[in-house]
Design a protein around this nucleic acid. Structure first.
Length: 789
DNA sequence: TATCGTAGTGTTTTT
DNA sequence: CACTACGATA
């Protein structure tokens, strides 16, 4: 008997069926064409996530089926009916017949993989699937490219000579490593920019070109320099047992391509492969998808060529444009009905994007009313522009509109400044998405680097970061000596430090080096027995890092302590959530984590972000500011028609974020980078059809809202997206600990508070525990694990 | 070895 | 303007 009858209650099935019925004809087709390659061209706001979810649910329930468009009878329905009757004894079936009927059985949840780009999208997919199909939902691989690769690599990467507990290097680690290699090879860092070299290497990896092939692919002097760096870079990564982000895809492809057992394992497993945001895939990701789907050939990709905005990161729109050639027999379904924006907004966006030549061509339509016209405004100065935005928001706000329905989008971060200033002056709560991320802060990175070294002492990049932080008298020349020895003897820098006494050049620092390696090793030994959180606390104390912060004064140091403590709550949150928490698991999770993941759409504030980070979001009212030649489109793209088309797509993405109201603003004069410059309004404004838009006359003097217009309690939050916000969720009622208070902690037992220092609306507590001694913790966090007694 | 001053630089950045 | 990265100093 088929699975799903046992697993799905009648009520749940009714809900699922109703969901399906709400879909339009095209969406239904997209859900039902389950077999073979399928390209789903899903325009902005066309409900593609809903389609993806319905598709998976449909698969789980009915499996492979007819391609019948808008079929009222779902695939497998007939087979199911027969099986049911047989089960009820109404019908006699031979074993053979039963088998044939059962062959139409749906795939198991773990035979489906849905790949996205962001953690946020993956998380959303996962939770919606779980809501719809319970435990089945959680067995589906709904993950990002990188987390899928991490899973595959952990299992089999030893075949490529790496250890299973490899580290993941972020952009910063990568840059450090490349800089040090450039220096080592004797090149002038001013002439050879590490970032440029890094992106050339990225490009090679995206194209699945290894160091040797890259070197032999010839070229000019610069190419040969990059080739040299690339070779050493690869060697260093291997020695440190580390992968960068590009490697995660590259190595997975290698694994699948070069090892038939591995390939077959996954090709047998994944009967259905779904890929979201396909327009943003690069060549390596394309190959990865085709390898994963290579068994059954059921590859469904969803994307919108008009929203491809990551070409500069290696994404190639060709993956979409040439999908039908790459996968013969592929079907294409267009989802062109837009459920998000009003008629005017859509008309404007359509017209602008229609100027692009490189596109599949598709016209979004809506049955929504035209709504208000798109508002255009050009101020004399940036302040005028900012106050236009402020006034618009203020007017709506006083009519009862909520602030989180507004967003201000700009092409680059530098533009946020004057808008931010205007919001501050007008007391409008705002938040800036992105900027400096929590995990990018120096002190947080330091602590993470320590954890990485504890996890994997061979990790030389992280080792360099912390070996003299706090100062341990291990200066640059000692570190260089370590690097030399490690290179010469083929051992890690950590090993070299351990053997300090054997190397004359290290003799003078042997004591310092040994005490460092002992610190790491003692902590590493501890990680087997002690909970993660305890390991972290010991690290804070024993490394002397916390003491170093404490000895500094000023607000900056307080903030640093807070951040280091915040990382602690991140760890405890992980430990509480994970089934089997490990140091490696934690590190992997956060290295694949980014800032937009922390974006909270509920908070009542106007959000501000770059157009890039707005992808996938929607708002009632959108302001696109800085619409000037040289800014948007950016001056760097203006000579190159292809790059200009990418700018236009960016503009399209920005416009299609708006549901009800869209404003495009510019300024004739602008103070940027300390200089005043003049620019014409963007060509994208010229491309807007005036039948759907109107100019806003800047004649009236800029209006300043009164001070008391917005609740005084509203806070200005910069960098709200500061990683995982666990503590913000539930500050416990009672965190008001005083010195002398007896407390009982979940893991440290009983103790007394010896000091409580106020710190940013919280307290830094010093507690002397009866059994484990003195600990420092932030009160709000601690209160979750601790009671007064 | 740490700190201070200055010279240089300045799209976008899912992981 | 604001930030970083490096070199000259104590």
């Amino acid at each position: 008997m088929s699975q799903f009858d046992l697993q799905y209650s009648a009520a749940r099935r009714a809900v699922i069926a109703k969901d399906f019925e709400r879909l339009n004809g095209m969406q239904r087709q997209a859900v039902l064409k389950t077999e073979g390659p399928l390209l789903l061209l899903a325009g902005a706001g066309s409900g593609k996530t809903t389609v993806l979810i319905n598709r998976i649910i449909n698969l789980l329930r009915y499996g492979a089926g007819s391609d019948c468009p808008a079929a009222p009878v779902w695939a497998g329905e007939e087979e199911l009916r027969l099986l049911k009757s047989a089960d009820a004894g109404e019908l006699q079936l031979s074993e053979e017949e039963k088998e044939r009927l059962c062959a139409v059985q749906p795939p198991r949840p773990w035979e489906i993989i849905a790949i996205t780009f962001t953690n946020k999208a993956a998380g959303e997919l996962k939770s919606r699937l779980e809501a719809a199909c319970g435990s089945d939902g959680s067995e589906i691989w709904a993950c990002t490219f990188h987390s899928a690769c991490a899973r595959i690599l952990r299992r089999d990467i030893t075949r490529l000579g790496y250890g299973a507990s490899f580290a993941i290097y972020d952009e910063d680690d990568k840059k450090r490593l490349i800089s040090s290699i450039i220096k080592e090879l004797g090149y002038d860092e001013k002439r050879i920019d590490p970032r440029a070299v890094g992106s050339r290497i990225s490009g090679a990896k995206d194209a699945l070109v290894g160091p040797e092939e890259f070197a032999s692919s010839g070229g000019d002097y610069y190419h040969s320099v990059v080739a040299q760096v690339y070779q050493v870079y690869e060697r260093r990564l291997l020695a440190a047992n580390a992968l960068d982000f590009d490697d995660m895809i590259f190595k997975t492809v290698q694994l699948l391509r070069d090892f038939p057992e591995v390939r077959e394992h996954y090709q047998r497993r994944f009967k259905y492969v779904l890929v979201d945001e396909y327009q943003d895939t690069n060549h390596a990701q394309y190959v990865l998808c085709s390898l994963l789907a290579g068994g059954y050939g059921n590859l469904c990709v969803v994307g919108d060529d008009d929203q491809s905005i990551y070409k500069f990161r290696g994404a190639t729109i060709r993956n979409i444009l040439e999908f039908e050639e790459s996968f013969p027999g592929a079907g294409t379904i267009r989802l062109e009905q837009n459920y998000r924006s009003t008629g005017n907004i859509l008309a404007v966006a359509n017209r602008v994007i229609s100027q692009n030549l490189q596109r599949k061509g598709k016209a979004l339509w809506t049955d929504k009313p035209d709504g208000e016209k798109v508002q255009l405004f050009v101020g004399e100065t940036q302040d005028e522009e900012a106050y236009y935005i402020v006034k618009q928001i203020y007017d709506q706000y006083s009519k009862g509109e909520k602030l989180n329905n507004f967003t201000v989008l700009y092409r680059n971060h530098a533009l946020s400044n004057n808008i931010e200033a205007a919001f501050k002056r007008s007391r409008i709560p705002y938040r800036i998405v992105a900027g400096l991320r929590f995990f990018d802060r120096a002190e947080v990175k330091d602590m993470l680097a320590y954890l990485w070294v504890i996890h994997n002492p061979a990790d030389s990049v992280r080792l360099r970061r912390v070996i003299n932080q706090p100062a341990r008298k291990i200066g640059a020349k000692t570190v260089d000596a370590l690097a030399d020895i490690s290179e010469k003897h083929g051992i890690s820098m950590f090993q070299a430090a351990k053997n300090a006494e054997r190397h004359p050049e290290l003799m003078r620092n042997a004591t310092a080096l040994l005490s460092f390696t002992e610190l790491i090793e003692s902590l590493s030994a501890l990680r087997e027995q002690a909970p993660l959180i305890e390991l972290y606390e010991l690290l804070l104390e024993r490394s002397g890092y916390l003491d170093m912060l404490r000895s500094q004064n000023g607000e900056e140091a307080v903030g640093k302590i807070e951040n280091v403590m915040e990382l602690k709550s991140t760890i405890s949150e992980y430990a509480a959530r994970a089934e089997a928490p490990t140091l490696g698991g934690f590190l992997e999770e956060i290295s694949l984590l980014t800032d937009v993941d922390g974006y909270d759409p509920e908070a009542d504030a106007v959000s501000m972000m770059t157009v890039h980070s707005a992808k996938g979001l929607e708002f009632d009212t959108v302001f696109i500011c800085g619409a000037e030649e040289g800014l948007f489109p950016s001056y760097r793209s203006m000579e190159n028609p292809e790059e200009l088309e990418e700018e236009r797509r960016l503009c399209y993405v920005a416009m299609t974020r708006a549901k009800k109201s869209l404003h495009v603003t510019a300024s004739r004069r602008r103070m940027l980078y300390g200089q005043t410059s003049y620019a014409k309004p963007s060509r994208f404004i010229d491309e807007i059809p005036m039948g759907n838009a109107e100019w806003h006359c800047p004649a009236a003097p800029a209006h300043k809202p009164k001070r008391e217009t917005v609740p005084a309690s509203a806070k200005y939050v910069r960098n709200v997206a500061s990683g995982i916000s666990v503590t913000a969720e539930k500050p416990p009622a009672d965190f008001n600990f005083r010195p002398g208070q007896r407390v009982r902690h979940q893991s440290f037992g009983d103790g007394s508070v010896t000091a409580a220092t106020p710190m940013g609306g919280d307290f830094l507590l010093e507690i002397r525990f009866d059994s484990v001694g003195k600990k420092l913790m932030m009160a709000k966090t601690a209160a979750q694990f601790m009671n007064k007694i």
